[in-house]
Design a protein around this nucleic acid. Structure first.
Lengths: 367, 367
DNA sequence: GCTCAACCTTGAAACGATTCACATCTGCTG
DNA sequence: CAGCAGATGTGAATCGTTTCAAGGTTGAGC
């Protein structure tokens, strides 16, 4: 805990305080001006003030200006609660992601925000930490606030809560998760396809023995990506039992990748010439191990990652990786909510295709 | 735009649709239950329902249970707007950062969120993109919503808007920016001190000629960090004119750092033995250039960065860097808002001290 | 001069929770 | 048994906006 008040800030404060003659102990709470106040000052009825605010074209120019002047003078600001209470409308949507500190969701959040800004909506953003209770609490808060819709990356087993929200007539779009119900909209990325892209790329380079550094099969992503790898091998006429070594990762980070790669290199029998890592952190660790052990990349071992994190392109050997359109997912999900609201169309279920970004870790001549 | 609907999702939808007999064209809007409905069902008055909700201890056990049952049955959810309109209270605060997609602010946001969660507050989070207009728009939305307080990383020239918000009795805490007024609370990090830490560390290692890869002096951070460097040199009896080469960066990213380092190595005259980079991206580029040109790190050139981004520790030569307590800043700012609300105490102005994380890029034997 | 439409404006009735002054009931004290 | 306190419950008033039926003006057309 290293915090301190700066000396400069404090002395500046004292200087000001001395200069100021505080009349009252504390400034009066200064209640906000209401439409009534504005109406009084402008000499019109509250209805007219409301019209100036919401349908200015229905108000005579003179009156309109008078009201506007009064609004200025009183620094009137609409009370969103009263507005919503009466009109039922609220320009807010809620989003729950697993963790806003994770760049993955952060990019998504940015997409959501940008789409909302177009329609002057505000965003309530929360992290569930994959804790269904915490998620439920946030969903309830959203509902109390009467949000127009909810975007959610469901944490394990929380889908029911979202379905019941949908039943109470709140629009819901699932993020990064395909919808189990036709009523529920969703935006996801095709993980099977992403892994297939990576695998296909390595096979195209002439590799015939691959390693796959994979995480626990309790994660949907790991299962899907494995499916993608296996399907691709089969479709190219290769037998996974021969062409593939799958190494389980202790942890889904750089150290896990490092350890797994060392295990792979110590393996008896013919060494694979290419490695597909289930994410970029893992690939980073694998690259580190390869460098430490003097294995040339991509010459002796090609490496492909997944996620295309920001530093993938900045590494000593830039990492080939599968890029997921997170920003676009967020943007699209928000767009579905805003466009679809109140319409009769069935819920859309979109799946985006990921994209392979080829760099130097898998192809010698690439960037 | 590569999007597609999955075949599986569609066939699943058709299957369900066939099974379902849709009675009405569209489910009735199903108005939410209100306290009145609950009161009616439980056979009590609305006042009692409100009491069960807000002061359950004032209600007899039997009645309380009856009301709770009714709430359950009707799936009653409070209407936050009505609640706020009457009671004036709202458990929401707004935050504007420059860009939520930036890990820097993201970590801060996470700190804010975690503190708010303790008090069941919700967060409205927005990115200003350093656009004062966009920021002003968000601040107005916050004000309309009647938020309890606002946390803001001010964009250039937007402080006035924040001050006027403060005048209208909305609590404001400035983030990552020292407050210009005693009335305005703030939480910042000491950039001068951070640069002094880095510089002191390099001098401690015996270096006497330093390079400083710095960004444009229109950024406060760059100015402050430069001050820290210069002050430290002076306080150790070194003449900056001799001991320091400052290289301006074209761009504040890896490529800028790469180019600047190449320029530095091409410099005539004695080569510095240590480089301080104004941020980690720049340092990453510098390290890349050093490796490409065969200069040993830290043997021939020690490198220190700033920000301690997530990958600093994962590089081939792990990067020594200055870590700023972003999470703690966010947490503390939110805490100030929640604790201070309505109290009479003067606004706090806190400045956190950054921390030097020593790794292999500046000390051979370090991690 | 009458009619009619177009245009403005009005003001009271919502919206749904909270609050608070007031009723009612119970049991206890002196 | 009057008096009183404490516990429990009531319901009308209130918050600040939007909505909408209805009223008032104006001017054109006949």
């Amino acid at each position: 805990m290293t915090s301190k008040s700066t000396a400069t800030a404090e002395s500046a404060e004292e200087a000001r305080r001395a200069r100021r003659a505080r009349p009252a102990k504390r400034a009066r709470p200064a209640k906000r001006a209401s439409v009534t106040d504005v109406a009084k000052l402008a000499g019109v009825s509250v209805g007219t003030v409301s019209n100036v605010l919401n349908r200015p074209e229905h108000v005579a120019a003179g009156t309109r200006e008078r009201v506007r002047a009064a609004i200025q003078e009183l620094a009137f600001v609409r009370n969103a609660s009263a507005r919503q209470l009466r009109s039922g409308e609220i320009k807010t949507i809620g989003a729950v992601v697993l963790d806003i500190a994770n760049p993955f969701f952060t990019e998504m959040a940015r997409g959501i925000e940008d789409r909302l800004a177009q329609d002057d909506f505000t965003l309530m953003l929360c992290s569930s930490d994959e804790n269904p209770e915490r998620e439920a609490r946030y969903l309830r808060l959203f509902e109390e606030h009467g949000v127009q819709g909810v975007l959610a990356v469901p944490s394990h087993g929380s889908i029911d809560a979202l379905i019941s929200l949908r039943k109470r007539n709140i629009d819901v779009v699932l993020l990064d998760h395909t919808s189990p119900l036709p009523d529920l909209a969703s935006v996801a990325v095709d993980d099977v396809g992403g892994a297939a892209l990576a695998t296909g790329h390595l096979l195209d380079q002439g590799h015939t023995r691959l390693a796959f550094l994979n995480g626990p099969l309790t994660l949907r992503q790991c299962v899907d990506r494995r499916d993608g790898v296996v399907q691709t091998l089969l479709s190219r006429g290769l037998d996974p039992a021969e062409a593939l070594i799958e190494i389980p990762l202790e942890t889904l980070n750089a150290d896990g990748g490092d350890a797994a790669m060392r295990a792979l290199l110590a393996w008896p029998g013919p060494r694979p010439t290419a490695t597909f890592c289930v994410n970029d952190l893992t690939a980073l660790g694998a690259l580190r191990a390869l460098r430490d052990l003097g294995v040339a990349v991509p010459g002796e071992m090609a490496v492909v990652g997944y996620d295309d994190v920001n530093f993938a392109s900045m590494l000593a050997t830039p990492l080939t990786s599968v890029r997921q359109p997170m920003y676009k997912m967020g943007w699209t999900a928000a767009d579905m909510l805003l466009r679809r609201h109140g319409s009769d169309e069935p819920a859309e279920q979109i799946e985006f295709a990921p994209e392979l970004v080829v760099r130097g870790s898998s192809v010698a001549e690439a960037g």
